[in-house]
Design a protein around this nucleic acid. Sequence first.
DNA 1: GTGAAAGCGCTAACAT
DNA 2: ATGTTAGCGCTTTCAC
Lengths: 339, 339
Amino acid sequence: MSATIKDIANKVGVAPSTVSRVLSNKTKYYNSLTAEKVKKAAEELGYKKNQAAVELVKRESNVIAAVVSSVKTNFAGEIIDGIQEEALKHGYDLIVVYAGSADSDEQKRALLTVIERPVMGILLLSIALGEDNLKLLKESQIPYCFLSMAFDDNRPFISSDDEEVGYKATKLLIDKGHRKIGLAGIDKFPYTGRLRLQGYKKALDEAGIVFQEDWIQTGDYSYLSGEKAMDQYGKDTDLTGIVAVSDMVAIGLLNKARNLGLNVPGDLSIVSIDGTEMCRIVQPQLTSISQNFFEMGKSGVQRIEDIKKHKKLVNLQQMIPTRIEERQSTTQKENLTYF
Amino acid sequence: MSATIKDIANKVGVAPSTVSRVLSNKTKYYNSLTAEKVKKAAEELGYKKNQAAVELVKRESNVIAAVVSSVKTNFAGEIIDGIQEEALKHGYDLIVVYAGSADSDEQKRALLTVIERPVMGILLLSIALGEDNLKLLKESQIPYCFLSMAFDDNRPFISSDDEEVGYKATKLLIDKGHRKIGLAGIDKFPYTGRLRLQGYKKALDEAGIVFQEDWIQTGDYSYLSGEKAMDQYGKDTDLTGIVAVSDMVAIGLLNKARNLGLNVPGDLSIVSIDGTEMCRIVQPQLTSISQNFFEMGKSGVQRIEDIKKHKKLVNLQQMIPTRIEERQSTTQKENLTYF
DNA sequence: GTGAAAGCGCTAACAT
DNA sequence: ATGTTAGCGCTTTCAC
């Protein structure tokens, strides 16, 4: 076993509490001579603090836990970056655990591994907890906040305004003269998907476009969903623009469209939602409604901080602004039938 | 505060030790009636085990820690998937911490957050520790293994055979009739980069090709490195094939080549190293020497397991086989000048 | 089968 | 400035 403060105390000839004070930098509660000796002994013994013991007595820790829905979402990394940066600023450590987005047992397992130790806050990245697991989380008394996922109950979250996102994407196409606009890759479940669909419909409505059921292709935000959706639309689709609910869907759309002999953006404009690095490394580069994932991460940490401090205003639901980034996958439609 | 076993003991009217036995499933050391009552009370009180306390007394835990060099490497996810799956099989929990790949302080911080609690094993993903941090790791007495990174000292690691990888990639191009072959995005640091370079040179040697210094473009495995490399080679390069040291480099190469008016694979063949999903979502799809990252993760967990069991054979260095996946970015060179 | 008691490594009063 | 003491929540002998 590794050396303990007792070992150091013995070696130096002081009390364990003194060692503790030195090693925890309780300045002004020890003199620099003993401090020297203690530090030297610690070094020599290869001493490592046992945080389990520390956390047990202090009943608090400086670690923030992030629970991530899946290793594969390509924006999780950006959120984690944001969390990391902000955490560092506050002197917190970050640990990440992965949970399958769907499977309730996996979720529970992931949740327990963080709840069962005294973490100071839990951030849940694009994960929708089931009833049981949400209860677990609440009971733990640990400050928490959902990231990149919005809810219509009173859970605290930080997310993009998904209705607005759907609206903006659709409106962008409409403003470029498109009237027949698809929506691809969307899930049928509550929250994100439904909200974006609402925004999409709202934009269509405002433009007086009557929406057709087969403009919508459901999916799960994946590359495959994009390919499948484009297959469904088919080579002879009368759509001139499509909103993709994620970058991966957009790329699936793009590739399949090309295989079908359709030119993007010549025959078909695509606007993607997310705006990760992916948009810039495909050709044509994808126009996107870009979410500020990094900022979500930062805000998440600040939220944990807030809850800890003010104890209450727990259920704040907050939106992070998105921005439109026009790249090469969208174009003005020339033959504006309405002029 | 959350309820403790003491609270449960009081509520049920038994001793804390009994509660402990029930909750830890020490079967046959309690009767099922008390077990019932205890479990019910635990449920009602929303009891959560305090792992800090458990680990303190047991001096061991069932969590494996993965230290990842950066959020951005796009294959880390595959390794983590592998770790996760194998960990689950053994009943271990996984926590992940991120460390900058370069900055020594960040590395240390990440390392300490896992060393300072009783984790049962540490897996380091494509991260090259500095002397100090390596010492820290060794002192901790915790079983560890490097993943996706090879060393020439006696550290335990599991990785692809990087020399072979470089060799295979280059040989593939040679077999297709290419004689002027670049190597792009490689780093100047030891290990991975240097080994792949060796393999590259070996393949060239064997084919009697005399290698030119300007065929090599250094970089850092990033998309940008790829673009920069292609810029350096230039529109009028006499290279007909390029080996990219990562998928991202390959994509950078690909896009820049296209911008320069070069057709891939018509004018230029590209073979990528890694073989992640990225290879399949760009057009043309990238031929690759694919690493089995998932398997690396699995083997990593097994290694931890082994070290724990047999205590010694610690420094085993292990290679995971790679495979060649031909896709669309490589083609036979027609005019074979040597016939 | 269950209770009592000791102790894991550390910190935080409370003394001095 | 430093030593003494108690105790965080749990597991584990050792009794009975």
